[in-house]
């Protein structure tokens, strides 16, 4: 064999540099990275893969607890990154997760449907577990919705804190202590005292005398009703009997 064939043969035996596999998989978005982000309500760990967020967790229980949880629930390797992608960071700081992509990995279709629907609830508003169940076409699965949200792997960005009990109680919170749910909702501009007062008086909907539309109390249309034109309703039938129709944006009752 002459020199050229020999050298070509050796060239074909060249090895990719050390770490090439991992670097390439990360560039393809097939590896998760994580970093810590400081927010107005405390420090969070966030994990992402490519441009998709795969997990968010409060940092108060420590890094080991986060890594252990990720290994168990997501079951992929996770590596520290020097910084968080700007879009993910600003979404966390503003609790606005709607513009991001998510990696729901191992979640069931039902759980994914619950999380996607929850993502639609606007900042500064709340909905009930029953509303989420109805909207995803599983009106009987209210408890299952609660369970799915309790295991939300991406709290804060997927705003499970905006899903509350129908009776005005705020309910459980996957992202940490129930008090934290109050803090986040207050940060988002919600008047919890006012909401509790409505619930205590069993008022579930607000209507506008000018448009004859009724809404969830926190719907942005409801908040724009002038005090003189605002009507409170306890039940759908009461609102309909008074000649009101449900809001098309917050969809307070079944279609």
């Amino acid at each position: 064999m002459n020199m050229v064939e020999e050298a070509l043969h050796e060239l074909s035996a060249a090895q990719a540099p050390d770490g090439f596999l991992e670097r390439t998989l990360r560039a393809c978005g097939l590896r998760d990275s994580y970093a810590k982000v400081a927010t107005p309500i405390g420090d969070y760990f966030v994990a992402w893969r490519g441009n998709r967020v795969s997990a968010v967790s409060r940092a108060d229980k420590g890094l080991d607890s986060f890594l252990g949880w990720f290994a168990e629930k997501v079951d992929r390797s996770l590596e520290p990154a020097a910084s968080v992608p700007a879009a993910i960071r600003s979404a966390l700081l503003a609790t606005r997760g709607q513009g991001l992509s998510y990696d729901f990995g191992q979640l069931t279709e039902f759980e994914q449907a619950v999380l996607r629907k929850t993502l639609e609830i606007p900042r500064g508003e709340v909905r009930s577990y029953g509303w989420v169940a109805r909207e995803i076409g599983r009106p009987g699965a209210v408890r299952a919705v609660g369970t799915a949200l309790r295991h939300n792997p991406i709290p804060l960005l997927i705003p499970c804190h905006r899903v509350v009990r129908g009776d005005g109680d705020l309910g459980n919170y996957a992202g940490g202590h129930p008090e934290l749910k109050k803090d986040i909702l207050t940060l988002e501009g919600l008047d919890l005292g006012w909401l509790e007062d409505l619930a205590r008086r069993r008022k579930r909907f607000l209507g506008s005398r000018t448009t004859h539309v009724f809404c969830h109390p926190t719907c942005f249309h409801a908040r724009r009703i002038a005090p003189d034109n605002r009507v409170e309703f306890s039940a759908e039938q009461e609102a309909r009997a008074a000649g009101y129709r449900p809001c098309r944006d917050c969809r307070p009752v079944a279609a």
Binding site: L11, S12, A13, A14, A16, P17, F20, T24
Partner: peptide, 24 residues
């Protein structure tokens, strides 16, 4: 395929730095 593709890129670029970039 990483090693063979890297070898191919190395043959086309002539240096390992560019070869890694191309292969990745």
């Amino acid at each position: 395929h990483q090693h063979r593709l890297f070898a191919l890129a190395l043959g086309m670029c002539g240096n390992p730095h560019d070869a890694e970039e191309v292969a990745q």
